[in-house]
Amino acid sequence: MDREKKHLTGRCLVGWMIAFFIAIPAMVDGGGRTLSQAARASLPSHLLNPRSVELISAEELRQLLHHYRGRVILLNLWATWCVPCLKEFPDLSKLQDRYRDRGLTIIAVSVDEPDELETKVRPYVRDRAPTFSTYLRKENDLDAFVSVVDEGFAGILPTTYIIDRTGKIKKKLVGRKTYEELESLIVPLLR
């Protein structure tokens, strides 16, 4: 009996270990991020690791934010015609590079018109080569799109949301902020 029990326990253990090693790649993406299985199931791969600017719907943005739950998220709304946004890009890249491994994910979403992906937004981003993920809203109705995070978005750019590891918006920042200002808000959340 004891022997049989031990045998069963051993088989269970092996089973769990196999399951664990199978599950690990499924739970963690290339950047070492823990994945939500639900988000993984429904989010297209090109949105998870965009090589260029990708169109994103409100629902996909919601899923993307959910996907990165457990990390600190800086969500930046910008547009190609917004000069302060343009000036903020290098600081966002610097922040992403410095704090990626400590759990920071920067998501930048352009609120240019959805049909300006190829004509304006992709060329603009290509020239600047940011180190964070960039998207363009898919919905024409900007209110409907931004309502995923903010019902009171006034269309002022840039607008930045700092979201903690639990998915709670800790700060809404309107206008361009310096690297130091952003860093001072993010670092305490990374601890």
């Binding site: 547009a79 607008t159 309107v174």
Partner: peptide, 27 residues
């Protein structure tokens, strides 16, 4: 206090020489 693009004009209208009206978004 803002360093950004509000995209918010102030709209003007007049009535006679005395009244000047303005409507605008402000934070």
């Amino acid at each position: 206090m803002i360093n950004g693009c509000p995209l918010k004009p102030a709209i003007l209208a007049t009535d006679g020489e005395k009244w000047v009206y303005a409507a605008w978004f402000t934070a």
